[in-house]
Design a protein around this nucleic acid. Structure first.
Lengths: 340, 340
DNA sequence: CTGAAAGCGCTTACAG
DNA sequence: CTGAAAGCGCTTACAG
């Protein structure tokens, strides 16, 4: 009920508050006997140091920030879940902050934020992770940061990323192996690096198999359900029609699926559809969506891990980078084409 | 670059730090002229007070907590989005904390958390909002809290809730108005108050229309996709078959839909399906799901608002409660029954 | 209406 | 190996 401070612990253990502080922070040069006395008092009183006092007095803030803007809520929620897990395990807390990507004063707003609430490190998601001015502001405030799937200056900071190009290559190759020859592609916004990489991977695989891609720009989308639906309107009007459509994300694949349903196509017989992300909805739609699983929760974990337990680097070594593996998840939305 | 403190502002404005503090906290008894000088200095220096120092020295922490466990990620993400919006607008920050609902030491864990990081208030989501010991711990720590859709002791604290019974009544009535007579119901876990209320509302509407509900327990589910699918296996085996199925949440409705697809039923002609929640997926499935929209983002906003700008209550008045409206969202998954 | 002093609960830098 | 003092950047309680 009453609040318990380091003084209470010190008194009970019969030592100074400085010694309690040493034990709390795992500093060396404490006699085992003394340490045990302190730990016993800590346990008996259920003491945990106050985070504000620690932040004010010392170098650590015990606070990790997750900065995002205008996200796919599911994507940010998954990152958050991963980050939260690591934070809990290491006695950190997670502050979630929406930082508008718009406006010329991004750097100023970040500087103000970091002065207002000091954080030990910050996780940056797309698209703000690609605003160089944001990185400059973080550096100026000496706040470490990890970026998730950055496309600008990837080597500049610690990052967690996936090999989108390779994953798209593999998925396309799988469709080709099933027997598909006319494969449509619905691309994401070209300024989005991951989208561009996925497009690249698709084209690589098609060319490697000696397959033509006559109208690759016909399927241009913007990662939204609606843009997928509209891309499908165009692609499915082709003659001959594609027997498979690969989409650069799941939401667009759902749009393609909706359009196929409207046209009363039989799925997957008339049209195989594959997506990218493995959103929860992929298991719910009919037929269930074949897609590329991106381990987003694990990416959140890896990012928090970089901040909390930074790997030791040699001088001049590039910042740490963790490549996360993709998985092909084959469900019922893909099959062999009915008519060659 | 260098950090700016209240001393810098005071020096620049030619006043004491106490006067700067007064202006910052909107205290009365500051001459307009003095206030203007201070505000000019604040603006010129881009000053914002440090949250740790404020929390340590004063009564306010400028921190709101969102406490959850094992959630529907989409539900928590939506609440968070609403809470975040209000926090930003009022200069607060949002701490997200997963607190396991399991274990007998919930009260102790909360007490430790609240001593470690003081918060001005806490938003409690189901199921922890229904653990009385958690409420006791919060009261003991004198931390205000708002509960989202509590089922235990609802009058005990501020809360934001919806009229689930009424919404289920309305949706059921709508199906009846379309001409359905044999309507199946897929219920959520009975210990979940909202689930029980939705079941109640369904039964009320059926009785009010003089319709029989022979096997109401046949559709028992647990809010998961799979449980909806299994409930549909049972309900669709009935003879005569229901012409409509109303589910206590969307996830189960998607399960019913999947089972209907497996049985090669024509949707919605052979079977109308309605859900509850209006999850993002409701617009993506085929046919798009008729459902009850619950304004979850707005509930997050309302909860944060209660904490940040608590309504003034008369002595002895019950804690504030905000009833949120539901909306019936009619899409293509419901229609008139084909064969009476 | 304004300010000087004390203190919030810790860590840092220094002394022993 | 341990501790006394100072200080982090604010607000509180008090004085004027």
């Amino acid at each position: 009920l009453a609040k318990i401070t380091i003084d209470d612990v010190a008194r009970r253990a019969g030592v100074s508050i400085k010694t309690v502080s040493r034990v709390l922070n795992n500093e060396p040069f404490v006699r085992v006997e003394t340490r045990d006395k302190v730990l016993a008092a800590v346990t008996a009183l259920d003491f945990t140091p106050n985070i504000s006092a620690r932040a004010l007095a010392g170098a650590k803030a015990y606070l990790i920030g997750l900065l995002f803007d205008n996200p796919s809520p599911a994507y940010v929620a998954a990152l958050e879940q991963g980050a939260l897990k690591v934070c809990r395990a290491s006695g950190r807390h997670l502050l979630v902050e929406q930082v508008s990507d718009q406006g010329p004063d991004l750097a100023r707003r970040l500087a103000v934020l970091l002065r207002t609430v000091r954080m030990d490190g910050v996780i940056l998601t797309p698209p703000i992770c690609d605003r160089i001015e944001a990185l400059d502001a973080l550096d100026a405030a000496k706040t470490p940061y990890v970026r998730i799937a950055p496309s600008q200056a990837p080597e500049r900071s610690a990052r967690v990323y996936g090999d989108d190009r390779r994953a798209a290559y593999d998925m396309t190759s799988r469709l080709i192996a099933l027997g598909h020859r006319r494969i449509g592609f619905v691309a994401g916004p070209p300024e989005h690096l991951a989208a561009a990489e996925r497009r690249r991977g698709f084209l690589d695989a098609m060319h490697a198999a000696g397959l033509e891609v006559p109208d690759v720009d016909l399927g241009q989308g913007s990662f939204t359900f609606r843009s997928g639906l509209e891309a499908a309107e165009r692609l499915l009007a082709l003659d001959p029609r594609p027997t498979a459509i690969f989409c650069a994300n799941d939401d667009m694949a759902f749009g393609v699926m909706a359009q196929a349903h409207r046209l009363r196509l039989d799925l997957p017989g008339d049209l195989s559809i594959a997506g990218f992300d493995d959103t929860p909805t992929a298991e719910i739609v009919w037929p269930r969506l074949t897609t590329v699983r991106q381990p987003v929760v694990e990416m959140g974990e890896a990012a928090a891990e970089f901040l909390i337990n930074p790997p030791k680097l040699e001088d001049g070594a590039p910042p740490p980078a963790q490549l996360m593996p993709f998985d092909l998840v084959e469900r019922e939305s893909t099959t062999e084409p009915w008519a060659g």
